[in-house]
Every structure is written in structure tokens, then in C-alpha cells.
């Protein structure tokens, strides 16, 4: 029983991680809480759904389409809600991205209606039994995609020139700019990466839960926020680990204490972190510099 729950927690946690990575990347380079990130996740899910239903796409095409669409949405967000807003008012981009949240939610409601929509089966569901543990092919697929994405992102951040520029900008954007890092481009690339990952996470969520709604973004955004704080603001590795940790905790409380206790524990953790360890479990990259 406990192994089964741990596996389930890992599945849930991996999707939290994917969303939180985007949050924390954007927070790192801009010091901005990007409010519309949950909506990007939702748009990814709906683009995937649209491709499957109306274009007869398979899961890979749906993932690719959602990635491209949300990456473009990331570019749009930078040019519509971040760059034109004055940098002299730190809260201004927060407000403008809240605006973007409302716009995206309303567009989705207008096109798809306000109800929860069924996500068609795109992967044949086969159940595998390993002793007491049962895993479905859908779970294996979504977990594999999430892990591959995280590993690739980690290699990108640690080993490439752009990855180094992202880390440098997160530590001190003024010095980074002086050394020839194009900070505007770093911000753009960060938004593209974060949005594309959120888009993929959205499709995976649809595949896993077989249902999506235009309001699914808020729930995910809040969980992503908790994970980001748990892992340390701007700390990508922290977000990966903290996401899986939160997933495990939620599943275990739901299994042993009842599902109504699930969010209680999530927010209790959030409050405890803010009170006793505001830099998160794994420390933060940016807090000293700001």
C-alpha cells in the first residue's frame, strides 16, 4: 500500500515540479511572480485537446503542438505584459500579468465553454503489476516525459552558455549585462522555456486525469507557488525536488488522513516555510543579491 502511494505521489509531484520550474526560472531572472503561469499550463492542455479532437493528432503531435503554442505565448507575454511596463514600479509587471491571466481565462471560456471537458484517450491504457504495486502505461509515459524534460533542462542550465547567462542574470543582472549578457534575450529565452514546459505539463495533466477545464490554471498556479517557496526562490533544482516532495505529502495525507486534509497540509507547509525558513528548503540563489 505504501509503495503504491509513493508511486502515485511521484506522479503527482512530477507535474508540480514542471510548473514550479517555470515559476522559479522567471522569478530568478526578473524577480517577478509570473501570475499567468497557471494559465499557460491551461492553454497547453487545451491546445493538446484541440489537436487530438479536431486534427486527429496522436499524443506526440499534441505535445509538440502544445509546446510550440505555449512557447509563442511566452514570447507574447514578454512583449505584451513585461517589456512595455515600467521597471521603476516593481509591482507593475505583477499587475499586468494578472491582466494576462484574466484575458487568457476568458478566451478559453469563450472558445471551450466554462465546463470541464473530457480529454480523449490517446495512449492505450495497460496496467502493469509489480508485486503489490500497479502502474498504468499512461502513468509511466507522463512520468518519463517529465523526468526527461527535467534532465534536459538541468543539462541546459548547467552546461551551456545560455544556461550560464540565465544563472548569472539571476544572481546579478547589472554585472551580467556589463559582461555582455543580453539580459533582454535571457528574459525572453527564460519565458519561452518556462512556458513550453508548462504547456507540456498541461497536456500530460489532461492525459493523466482525462479531463480539463478553463479554470484548472489557478489550482496549479497555487501549488506551483508553494513548491517554488519550498524549493527556494529562483532555485531550479530545489523546485524539482520540492515538487516531488509536495506530491508525496499530498498523496500520503489523502491516503491515510482522508482527502479533505490534502490542501490543509499543503498550506500548513507553506505557512511553516514562510515562518521558519523563508529561503526554502534548499536555499535561494537570489535573495542575498536583491
Amino acid at each position: 500500500m505504501i509503495y503504491q502511494q509513493l508511486i502515485n505521489g511521484l506522479m503527482l509531484g512530477a507535474s508540480y515540479s514542471l510548473v514550479a520550474i517555470g515559476y522559479t526560472l522567471i522569478f530568478g531572472v526578473l524577480g517577478l511572480l509570473y501570475f499567468a503561469h497557471g494559465e499557460v499550463f491551461m492553454v497547453g492542455a487545451f491546445v493538446g485537446l484541440y489537436l487530438v479532437i479536431h486534427a486527429g493528432a496522436n499524443i506526440y503531435m499534441a505535445l509538440l503542438g502544445a509546446t510550440i503554442a505555449t512557447a509563442c505565448l511566452g514570447v507574447f507575454a514578454v512583449f505584451a505584459a513585461v517589456r512595455p511596463v515600467s521597471k521603476d514600479y516593481p509591482l507593475a509587471p505583477l499587475i499586468s500579468t494578472i491582466g494576462l491571466t484574466i484575458v487568457l481565462q476568458n478566451i478559453a471560456t469563450y472558445i471551450f465553454g466554462g465546463q470541464t471537458v473530457a480529454f480523449p484517450e490517446t495512449i492505450e491504457s495497460i496496467l502493469f503489476h509489480f508485486g503489490p504495486v500497479t502502474i498504468s502505461s499512461v502513468q509511466i509515459f507522463t512520468l518519463a516525459v517529465a523526468i526527461v524534460l527535467m534532465v534536459l533542462l538541468w543539462l541546459f542550465i548547467e552546461n551551456t552558455k545560455m544556461g550560464r547567462a540565465i544563472r548569472a542574470t539571476a544572481e546579478n543582472h547589472e554585472t551580467a549585462a556589463l559582461l555582455g549578457v543580453n539580459v533582454n534575450r535571457v528574459v525572453l529565452v527564460t519565458f519561452i522555456l518556462a512556458s513550453a514546459i508548462a504547456g507540456i505539463a498541461g497536456v500530460l495533466d489532461g492525459v493523466k486525469n482525462s479531463a480539463i477545464s478553463p479554470f484548472m490554471g489557478l489550482q496549479v498556479a497555487i501549488k506551483g507557488l508553494v513548491v517554488m517557496l519550498l524549493g527556494g526562490l529562483g532555485n531550479v533544482r530545489g523546485a524539482m525536488v520540492a515538487g516531488i516532495l509536495l506530491g508525496m505529502i499530498e498523496i500520503l495525507t489523502a491516503a491515510y488522513l482522508g482527502s479533505s486534509m490534502r490542501d490543509f497540509f499543503t498550506f500548513a507547509i507553506l505557512i511553516l516555510i514562510l515562518l521558519y525558513r523563508p529561503t526554502g528548503l534548499f536555499g535561494t540563489r537570489t535573495i542575498e543579491e536583491r
Binding site: K161, R164, R167, A168, E171, T175, A176, L179, V181
Partner: peptide, 16 residues
Amino acid sequence: FGQMTVLENVMLGRHC
């Protein structure tokens, strides 16, 4: 860049 290694700090100088 305190969180980076010595080598990474110098490599950043090549960005321009």
C-alpha cells in the same frame, strides 16, 4: 557570481 565556480565566472566574461 558567488554561486558559480571560478571557471564559470571567467567563462561568463566570454559572453560578449
